[in-house]
Design a protein around this nucleic acid. Structure first.
Lengths: 207, 207
DNA sequence: GTCTATATGCAGATAGAC
DNA sequence: GTCTATCTGCATATAGAC
């Protein structure tokens, strides 16, 4: 069988370049927000702006792919962390599963992935058509979190009077907004912030 | 004494127009994000784009003023809510003061003010020089919140192991991110969301 | 596949009439 | 003070050489 670009073991040169551009774009969007310029993305990827168009039809296409990969990455990290927690066959305590998800998502956004970071940072700024196309991805990731919350609620772990949608969105806000203020050169590590996020969201600031 | 533009009781026509432009800009930035266009702002204010320049030297100046007014508005609402709570001479329970601040800030962002909303939405997207100039305002509002938290911590109301900076930023994230998902036409009212925010931030989602 | 050079379009900004 | 018309600059996008 001849190797093709869809063979993940041996990506073509073109596929690797494409990946390099996406990496550069994620880093730029994370840092500069939605208005990051193609020239800067190209420079980071080690090429001229015009060359990007061999790999992507438009800036919008690039943005759309960053958003999609951003959610996919966060989703994958969260799912993996929970599967690790669950072990081979038994399902864990629903409260610990939620805590694990919060920690994993926060870490993904803070330091594990420029994609997850960029997604959190620019998702509110993209033009309507891109936002629309992104909704399906958001829904499936949201549904996963909703399951975690529903299960916990059913098990009686959560407050009875809680609106799960509002709770989920508020939690996402706390986690995603860290992209606006986290500074790796400062006192607080990503781990410490993730710990505080778990604590606040699950147990609150009050004693 | 001749009336001047600084006489707040009887603003000049020019001052009123300026205010109309700012209102329009706040509404546009809230809705469209940082990339809201001057033509749309002008249209909302009932004039042509070129006419804006009689009142503002540049788009950046307009943005900077929206940011400043956004924080000032949230600050004012929070302070007023807390002063009301405190009553004339006694200081209230530090926990109730925090809850009051959370509710007031969330309501400011959600429905009381396009300025507070716009500030929360675009603050992470503005170019470096505007962001720099905005830092002083952010610091003074942040200091106010820090006082609320410090007082509560000293009174033994908060978790002992809590990093107050991280806690404050996470709370801001939960509150400010509501601008990304709140939809007045849907099931949840601003009040319900504010209630849930108070509950999550102070007491957590878990029972 | 990437380069250079150039075209296109659009948003911000300016000038001058009214 | 606001209008219309126009200018400018910049970022995206295209064309053709290599």
């Amino acid at each position: 069988m001849v190797e093709t670009s869809s063979d993940t073991k041996t990506p073509t040169k073109s596929a690797r370049t494409r990946k390099r551009i996406l990496d550069a774009a994620a880093a730029e969007f994370r840092q500069a927000g939605y208005n990051a310029r193609l020239v800067d993305i190209a420079e980071r990827a080690g090429m001229q702006a015009g060359s990007l168009y061999y790999h992507f039809a438009s800036r919008e296409e690039l943005v759309a792919e960053i958003l999609q990969l951003g959610i996919a990455t966060a989703f994958a990290q969260v799912r993996r962390a929970i599967e690790e927690l669950d072990g081979s066959d038994i399902e864990s305590d629903p409260r610990r599963r939620l805590e694990t998800a919060i920690r994993a998502h926060t870490m993904a956004v803070l330091e594990q992935s420029d994609y997850a970071s960029a997604q959190a940072k620019i998702v509110g700024q993209v033009p309507p058509d891109i936002a629309e196309a992104h909704k399906a991805d958001q829904r499936s990731y949201g549904a996963y979190w909703n399951d975690l919350l529903e299960t916990a609620a059913t098990a009686g772990v959560l407050r009875a009077d809680l609106d799960l949608f509002a709770a989920r969105m508020l939690a996402f806000g706390a986690m995603n907004w860290t992209t606006e203020w986290f500074d790796p050169s400062r006192r607080l590590s990503a781990d410490q912030i993730a710990d505080t996020a778990v604590m606040m969201i699950m147990s609150g600031l009050a004693k």
